[in-house]
Computed example of a mutant assay.
Amino acid sequence: MRLPLFLIAYLLVEIAAFAWVGEKVGVLGTVALVVLSTVVGLSLVQRQGLDALRKVARSTPGEAPVVAWDGLCLATAGVLFAVPGFVSDLAGVALLIPPVRRVLLAQAQRLSGARFTVRATSGGRTSGGYAAPTRPTTVIDGDFVDVTRPEPGPTLPKE
């Protein structure tokens, strides 16, 4: 029941923001601002998204969860910029600021009671997870092929 109330409140705030901006700059100015904020915001997210991909390529296993969180925040910012509205644009701009993303990560970890961890297996591969720290274990994952030749069985005498 809280989600529909939140959506109704959000829509009312967006309508109020449109009315306020429309009163200040007019209808055409409001439409121009919405289109401009969408185009500029999406281009910013695209540029920061490419930077995030470069960071993922250079990241160490311990940094990978934070880089993944940044990517999630940037994708969310892109969605917020694509939604017409001034309040959603402000939220999208907030997600583009790295310190804001770090605060949100800390809050998410605090609320969930878990931390991002990265565990390495014996094969040198890493697997990222969102789980509480656990006792270290060794996992050996592999396939095998039997390469021994069968022993020759009894032979029949040649006639």
Rank of each mutant, 00 (worst) to 15 (best):
Gly85Ile: 13
Gly85Cys: 12
Gly85Asn: 08
Gly85Pro: 08
Phe86Thr: 05
Phe86His: 04
Phe86Met: 12
Phe86Lys: 01
Val87Thr: 15
Asp89Leu: 12
Leu90Gln: 05
Ala91His: 01
Ala91Gln: 03
Ala91Arg: 04
Gly92Pro: 00
Gly92Arg: 00
Gly92Cys: 10
Val93Trp: 13
Ala94Asp: 06
Ala94Cys: 01
Ala94Phe: 06
Leu95Ser: 03
Leu96Ser: 08
Ile97Gln: 00
Ile97Met: 05
Ile97Leu: 11
Ile97Cys: 01
Pro98Cys: 00
Pro98Thr: 04
Pro99Glu: 10
Pro99Trp: 07
Val100Met: 06
Val100Gln: 00
Val100Glu: 02
Val100Lys: 00
Arg101Trp: 06
Arg101Ser: 00
Arg101Lys: 10
Arg101Leu: 06
Arg102Lys: 03
Arg102Phe: 04
Val103Phe: 14
Val103Gly: 07
Val103Ala: 10
Val103Leu: 15
Leu104Tyr: 08
Leu104Pro: 03
Leu104Ser: 03
Leu105Cys: 13
Leu105Thr: 09
Leu105Trp: 15
Leu105Gln: 15
Ala106Leu: 11
Gln107Arg: 15
Gln107Cys: 11
Gln107Tyr: 14
Gln107His: 11
Ala108Ile: 05
Ala108Thr: 04
Ala108Glu: 08
Ala108Cys: 06
Gln109Ala: 02
Ser112Met: 07
Ser112Pro: 09
Ser112Phe: 13
Ser112His: 13
Gly113Glu: 08
Gly113Phe: 15
Gly113Asp: 09
Gly113Cys: 09
Gly113Ala: 13
Gly113Leu: 11
Ala114Lys: 10
Ala114Thr: 10
Ala114Ile: 04
Ala114Leu: 15
Arg115Ala: 15
Thr117Arg: 11
Val118Asp: 03
Val118Gly: 04
Val118Cys: 10
Ala120Cys: 02
Ala120Tyr: 02
Ala120Asp: 02
Ala120Leu: 05
Ala120Arg: 09
Ala120Met: 14
Thr121Gly: 10
Thr121Val: 06
Ser122Ala: 12
Ser122Val: 09
Gly123Arg: 04
Arg125Ser: 06
Arg125Trp: 00
Arg125Thr: 08
Arg125Pro: 01
Arg125Leu: 06
Arg125Gly: 01
Thr126Asn: 07
Thr126Gly: 01
Thr126Trp: 15
Ser127Lys: 04
Ser127Arg: 09
Ser127Leu: 10
Gly129Val: 12
Tyr130Asn: 01
Tyr130Cys: 01
Tyr130Glu: 00
Ala131Pro: 03
Ala131Ile: 11
Ala131Lys: 04
Ala132Glu: 10
Ala132Asp: 09
Ala132Met: 10
